[in-house]
Simulated scan of single mutants.
Amino acid sequence: MGKSQETSFKKEREKKKKLKKDAKAKRKEERKMNSDGSAESFTYVDKFGNFSDTPPPPAEKMKAEDIDVSTPKKEDRATVKELETERTGVVTFYNDAKGYGFIKDKSTQESVFVHVNNTTEPITEGNMVTFEVEKGHKGPTAVKVTVKR
């Protein structure tokens, strides 16, 4: 008959698996014995962002709806700025040959496209300008651009 298919390597591997399984079961039993009766431990955060093991008083509990997880959307911030009709900014780039450039809005730090047709007087890079913003094909566009003196 044939020789047994079980080799010494297989036997050693099975022994190691059994030892690991026994050690894991032993650790699990130790955790059960050392636990203070509660199934899980919680960490609470107070309104100042400090961690504690005790729950906050009922009056101070926050609702999930009150928590703002992300920064406000750009549109939400822009609604306040849209009420202002005239803005100020600096011309960061302007190409005289092609007749277009970009203005960096002083209050929002937003880059706004400007075309020569929307200027009331010639502009150059570095000029401080006042302008109004309209929605263009590819984003905000500056109109009624004048050099601030």
Score class of each variant (00 low, 15 high):
85 T>S: 12
96 D>K: 09
117 N>I: 15
1 M>Q: 08
125 E>V: 12
48 F>P: 01
65 E>M: 09
68 D>W: 04
83 L>C: 12
24 K>G: 04
44 Y>V: 00
68 D>N: 13
4 S>H: 04
128 M>G: 01
123 I>K: 00
82 E>H: 14
104 K>Y: 05
80 V>W: 11
29 E>C: 06
2 G>S: 15
72 P>V: 09
147 V>E: 01
99 G>V: 04
10 K>P: 03
3 K>H: 10
63 K>F: 05
120 T>A: 15
100 Y>A: 01
8 S>M: 06
129 V>S: 03
33 M>L: 12
30 E>M: 10
17 K>G: 06
120 T>Y: 12
23 A>F: 11
58 P>F: 05
102 F>A: 06
71 T>I: 08
19 L>Y: 09
16 K>F: 08
34 N>Q: 12
139 G>H: 07
133 V>Q: 00
64 A>M: 10
82 E>V: 12
61 K>D: 07
73 K>V: 08
124 T>N: 05
39 A>E: 15
139 G>T: 06
79 T>M: 14
130 T>R: 07
35 S>M: 08
60 E>L: 07
64 A>Y: 10
98 K>F: 06
83 L>H: 14
40 E>Y: 09
39 A>N: 15
145 V>L: 04
25 A>D: 11
67 I>T: 05
45 V>W: 08
94 Y>V: 02
83 L>G: 15
68 D>R: 08
14 E>D: 15
46 D>S: 06
75 E>C: 06
71 T>G: 10
105 D>I: 01
24 K>F: 05
